[in-house]
């Protein structure tokens, strides 16, 4: 399967991170892994780009972080959603779905012509 060019869509990465964190408290490495697994490796990203996004979300108060211990016993920084983050995710998801639906409709129409 071909990888999708996720970098084109601004805000996509933020949404992916928020969704991933909606089920668990995770560190950066886990987040990258989960996105890869859930999207069946179709959404690949430069793993480093995760970090500016994480810090941006933290500054916005959508997620919060604390230092903990990883399964391997090393200290790692864990992120989790805040209440604001959860709300934001819900809104964004609705918008994203609406957008995707609209896009799909338009593309379908063109094919019919």
């Amino acid at each position: 399967m071909k990888s999708l060019r996720t970098d084109l869509l601004q805000g996509t990465l933020d949404l992916l991170i928020l969704k991933t964190l909606s089920t668990a408290q995770l560190h950066g490495w886990d987040i990258a892994k989960r996105i890869a697994i859930v999207s069946s490796d179709r959404l690949t990203l430069k793993q480093g780009s995760l970090y500016p996004a994480l810090h941006r979300l933290e500054n916005k108060g959508l997620i919060e972080a604390e230092w903990g211990v990883s399964e391997a016993g090393r200290s790692a920084k864990f992120y989790r959603l805040t209440r604001a983050g959860r709300k934001h995710l819900a809104v964004e998801r609705t918008e994203w779905n609406a957008f995707a639906q609209a896009m799909a409709n338009v593309l379908e129409m063109e094919e019919e012509q």
Partner: peptide, 14 residues
Amino acid sequence: DELRREVQFHLDQL
């Protein structure tokens, strides 16, 4: 420092 530690952890995992 914290940021470097965080990134280093990720790299080490990789």
